[in-house]
Nucleic acid binder design. Structure first.
Length: 351
DNA sequence: GACTCGTGGGC
DNA sequence: TGCCCAAGAGT
């Protein structure tokens, strides 16, 4: 920070937030907050975990489903692993769901079912990193912590016309954000900066004409808002190949397998099959007359494309699988599977 | 610091 | 179609 740097007024943003705060299921609106309504730390924590690298639109229904089924952190702590993983299926980044349960059980057993209020203690919880610790402390407990997510990075890069690319610029953007964090209404302020980034100071075609901080924005002055923040170039994704075996028993049961805790889709149910690489091979998980499907399941993960070759078979009752276990038709729903495995199921059921 | 780790929507 | 992006954390 140096003299002459833009110094926007947090009050201007709070005033904007009072008029334009989005209506979100996990949010206590500013008027209610002023009237003394305190957020439920459980709901704040749950929403923040779900929102990691995930859009509000994708999270909304999952949040409602989870809070209806597990209204408190102790309810969640008592849940079966398989039930939570199934409820999370489709939302992605499944380590979050595993850590969600670990965290709920830690809060229940070591913190008397109440979330810690301070940043340092929150950081010790599974799945809670610097951003989420600050968000819970600020939003749930109205402490003056600085949240730095992708929105805040973008807003700060523009306010200061910072052209150094992310992630190298992260430390300086964090200092800019810290310098702005107010002692009054820090929880609303944290949500306000993120709302600004999500609705006005957007990645593409920002609506600078509507921005309460426009007159204090260096990128607005320079005409560079839309090209910030700069980011380091990304590598392109390779394509990997795999084989999956979808066995259906004559009584309708499906042969599924719980994936290892670590790694891609860790802890989720899936179809037995090969590893994913250049030239996969894997013997079938059960003796049967296997038929190759004409169409591969295609799916793109964060860092590679996958083409999954599918094999199907109808197997008699008296045969024991070498891998996985049969799940009865009435206990199976493709909604309990990660999206890739749903795609494979849809193709097998169609064919 | 560099990787790994999902998914759906927008352009 | 292909790339970018989204309230990041763990290793």
């Amino acid at each position: 920070m140096s003299p002459g740097d833009p110094m926007p007024d947090p009050s201007d943003l709070l005033e904007w937030y009072d008029r334009h705060a989005r209506d979100l299921p996990w949010r206590v609106p500013p008027a209610a907050r002023k009237a003394g309504v305190a957020p439920d730390p459980y709901r704040v924590w749950l929403s923040e975990i779900m929102l990691q690298q995930t859009t509000v639109a994708a999270v909304r229904d999952y949040f409602l489903k989870f809070t209806a089924r597990w209204p408190t952190v102790t309810d969640l702590a008592r849940a079966e692993d398989a039930d939570v993983m199934a409820a999370w299926a489709g939302l992605g980044y499944y380590a979050r769901a595993r850590n969600l349960l670990k965290c709920a059980r830690t809060v229940a057993s070591e913190h008397q079912g109440r979330f810690p209020t301070d940043h340092a203690t929150l950081l010790t919880l599974p799945g809670v990193g610097p951003y989420t610790a600050a968000a819970i402390s600020a939003i749930a407990f109205d402490r003056p912590e600085t949240v730095v997510d992708g929105n805040v990075e973008r807003v700060m890069a523009r306010l200061h016309d910072e052209h150094q690319p992310l992630p190298q610029s992260k430390p300086v953007l964090t200092r800019y954000a810290e310098a702005l964090t107010p002692d009054t209404r820090p929880g609303d302020y944290a949500q306000a900066v993120m709302d600004l980034g999500a609705t006005i100071c957007t990645p593409r075609s920002p609506a600078c004409g509507l921005c309460p901080w426009r007159s204090d924005c260096a990128a607005w002055d320079a005409g560079t808002a839309a090209e910030l923040p700069k980011k380091s170039p990304k590598k392109r994704k390779p394509t990997r190949f795999g084989i999956a075996y979808l066995a259906r028993r004559v009584d309708g049961a499906w042969l599924l397998e719980r994936r290892p805790e670590r790694g891609l889709l860790g802890g989720m149910l899936g179809w037995p099959g090969s590893d994913w690489g250049d030239a996969p091979f894997e013997a079938p998980p059960i003796r049967a007359e296997w038929k190759a499907l004409p169409e591969d399941a295609r799916h793109t993960f964060t860092h590679f494309h996958l083409r999954l070759s599918l094999r199907t078979a109808l197997v008699p009752m008296d045969r024991t699988p070498e891998r996985g276990e049969f799940i009865p038709a009435e206990a199976f729903s493709p909604d309990d599977l990660p999206t890739l495995m749903r795609k494979a199921h849809a193709l097998a059921s169609k064919g």
